[in-house]
Design a protein around this nucleic acid. Structure first.
Lengths: 239, 239
DNA sequence: ACCTGAACACCGTTCAAGT
DNA sequence: ACCTGAACACCGTTCAAGT
């Protein structure tokens, strides 16, 4: 009985506990609230104690990425490449949606933690198993880019329209004059008084739309036996 | 002669000068070196003087984005939609490459400055002029996402291999065991002793590859009269 | 009325002093 | 030998004192 009642919460710190606390803190208060001092306080230790388990804040962030990437489902056995890739990326998307700060942190990393390399290697293995050439696999991974994590940097969120109908009408009038196409697109299909501006698009639909345009394109290139010695996809002339 | 020799550099500060100095500082020393204090010193003023021209640092960053987006070429007249969009995005890419910090700052913006809305509106106008439905224009803009700025978040840069041939061979052996597909792809086409790992891919080729896969896909959907009431691109069954 | 130095409330990280 | 409080060199921003 080493953990007796006389020392109730004297659980020794370890890297795992530091990382999980950091993830929980970022989940709860946002990534901008994650400071070494803040995290230490949350763990009931002095800030310097953290430096026993992570060399610095950058390494802390690396570790947090590892935790999130670890939540991505393993590849489904037996699926064809297209379904396998699609499923894996959409699983990554779910993991990233559970931790809204994660995409930002992933994009700020300058080197890949091992678990990230494993994930990328696994995706590439799926393409190769599907018959993709090494060449096409290479460019296809680049084309997916950060989309392999299930997110794409969206264009800027448009601000919420004012609640007052008159003010809203005035705002739309002004915007429509300056940005006619944005307003046209944003208000399409919303003719019953509300508008898509501010109310947000269906992010999941948009993500899958882009993913499927890419996957369909990859499939076509693969079938055509594309290779990079020829030109880029769109520039090949007929015959 | 208001600007006489007796007061040589007493040029009054204005927003324009603040923004240009901030861009120059970020270009020269990196975005992490851009602080209000640093920028003030560079301009020979006290930090508080900056707050006369920008409300806070966020607004300073907004202004810097405006400067960079202003460098993007206007649309070429007379080109078909595909060439026009392609050219515009590749021009944006050149602007962003001149300011390596810009993509990071653009992605961190929470709202779009007017010049950004104008650029997006202009792209959407090009799709519309090319006959795209409002519906397809909407989803196509989402699919491009941050690619409209000419960049995509690349996957993590792989570290430079060690110079010592023996150490390099050992490293490749270890990596190949853990990440066989990464190594396969990274070393393809480099059989003359060097490797693509660390030496970097052709970013411009990769960018245009992905862009063209998307543009080709958009063209195909447009010709098919795609609309979002049907399913996503890849999920439509034959017939 | 205008400007600005000092101060406030933070940061990540170092380091020497204390146990 | 180990731990940690104080300190260092920064931040963005506030505010009151000085001109």
């Amino acid at each position: 009985m080493t953990e007796s009642a006389t020392a109730p919460r004297r659980v020794p710190l370890d890297r795992e506990r530091v990382l999980r606390a950091a993830v929980a803190l970022a989940d709860g208060l946002g990534i901008e609230a994650l400071s070494m001092r803040n995290l230490a306080e949350r763990l009931g230790v002095v800030p310097m104690a953290l430096y026993k388990h992570v060399a610095n804040k950058e390494e802390l962030l690396d570790g947090m990425v590892e935790v999130i990437v670890g939540e991505i489902d393993p590849p489904a056995p037996g699926a064809d490449w297209k379904r396998a890739i699609r499923q894996r990326i959409l699983s990554a998307r779910q993991a990233l949606l559970r931790h809204r700060w994660a995409s930002q942190v992933i994009e700020s990393r300058t080197h890949a933690p091992p678990v990230v390399l494993e994930y990328m290697d696994s995706l590439m293995g799926t393409f190769r198993a599907g018959g993709f050439s090494v060449d096409l696999t290479h460019h296809v991974m680049h084309a997916l880019g950060s989309r392999i994590w299930g997110f794409t940097q969206e264009v800027f969120p448009t601000p919420l329209p004012p609640a007052d109908p008159e003010a809203r009408a005035a705002m739309f009038g002004q915007l429509a004059a300056r940005y006619p196409h944005i307003i046209e697109v944003a208000t399409a299909g919303y003719h019953d008084g509300q508008s898509a501006v501010g109310s947000g698009c269906d992010d999941q639909f948009e993500f899958e739309f882009a993913l499927d345009v890419l996957l369909d394109g990859f499939e076509r290139l693969h079938r055509q036996g594309w290779n990079s010695a020829e030109r880029r996809p769109g520039t090949r002339t007929a015959g």
